[in-house]
Design a binder for these strands. Structure first.
Lengths: 206, 206
DNA sequence: CAGGGTAAACTTACGCCGTAAGAATCATCA
DNA sequence: TGATGATTCTTACGGCGTAAGTTTACCCTG
């Protein structure tokens, strides 16, 4: 009957391939659907086979974070450090929004990967060129990335309009009024508004 | 022999009691240790008993978020709206830091509870008194809470010093330099630094 | 070409998990 | 007292992560 390998299309499974398939599966069906058995099935392989490429499921999830930050575009610091930080923030946000189901992961596991360190180093270079000292620059970088993560997290908890729709205007008059205005502003607008404020504040601080 | 109730000390279990015990367990042993069976054992009760007070485990986790935001101190908007926002941010951060194991939850489930709506309404009142329109005020509030959540999340991914300790100074010179300065600034300092910048920026924006 | 070594995949099994369904117990009040 | 409804326990099912051992396919070296 020819070897098992021949009847499945899975020839040389690699860590990369497993991680990519995991991202696809999580994107499509959510984190709860991402089990070792299910992922194996997706790859035409038994669950235990995956352990040949990853030591544990935790390592798989760490790998997903790694894939996520790997998708962050390199920031452009040529114009000014403000524009550099803005491009960094926008790029990070895009990467997170591209895989909303993975966002909860970054809240529970470190995102310190080689790829990410490179992005940070580049950002520090951009800030250094603008005369910001490395230690200060790291604070700034932390401020911006924390800000981006927080915004994506709080915004991705489902559409705010859905949650606010049922607000009792009698009990929470201002909230109801504000909620009524929500549809006029999309998530991008809110993000840009807040990012501008933060950058302006950081600017004033130096 | 007396009834079963008599030998355990669990008389009248309530939703509140279950949630409180869940918080304690999660605080002590982490989210992975928080299973229905384990939680039941902690309360001297079988797992299925908990379903009389909560419809599902997801509802339990939602309840934990509820408990978390319930612990946020009411912001003080008397002095100025900047100080009001600062107290809001500090209070929110304290509540999150008090239960680091629960932080990942807020990244995956909505935190819109009656308690939280009250805090938001109060904050909107404070901002309104300062002449900020409700819709703008909501943006500001979103910006600040997102910022706080992000900061706590990125900072609670373990001690940064641990992660940076192994940085190759040849490959990432600026990062290594900045990392060397990290111990001089504690998390509070970094948070205050970034919060000040954001508040300053929001101020300049109006 | 023979045969052994190795990496990759499979099989089986264990103890957890969330929870559906139903039986047993207790508290309360007519 | 006896019924009623709330509370708890028992049992069972399918799925989970993964430890342990087995089988297969390929690549050397002789």
């Amino acid at each position: 009957m020819a070897g098992r390998r021949t009847q499945g299309q899975s020839a040389g499974l690699t860590r990369e391939a497993v991680l990519r398939a995991a991202v696809v599966l999580a994107d499509r069906e959510g984190l709860k659907a991402l089990s070792m058995r299910r992922l194996g099935a997706e790859l035409g392989v038994e669950a235990m086979t995956l352990y040949h490429h990853l030591p544990s499921k935790d390592a798989l999830l760490d790998g997903l974070v790694e894939q996520l930050v790997a998708g962050v575009a390199a920031p452009q610091f040529e114009a000014s450090w403000q524009e550099g930080l803005r491009s960094y923030a926008v790029g990070l946000r895009s990467a997170l929004l591209a895989h909303p189901n993975l966002v909860p992961l970054i809240a529970s596991r470190p995102a310190v990967t080689a790829q990410n360190l490179q992005v940070m180093e580049a950002a520090l270079q951009g800030l250094a060129a603008a005369g910001v000292e490395p230690a200060d620059a790291l604070d700034v970088l932390y401020a911006v990335s924390g800000f981006v993560v927080g915004h994506v997290v709080t915004a991705s908890e489902g559409d705010p309009v859905d949650h606010f729709a049922a607000i009792d205007a009698g009990e929470f008059p201002l909230l109801a009024k504000a909620a009524a205005a929500v549809p006029d502003r999309d998530a991008d607008t809110r993000f840009t508004f807040a990012l501008d404020a933060l950058l302006k504040g950081l600017d004033a601080g130096r």
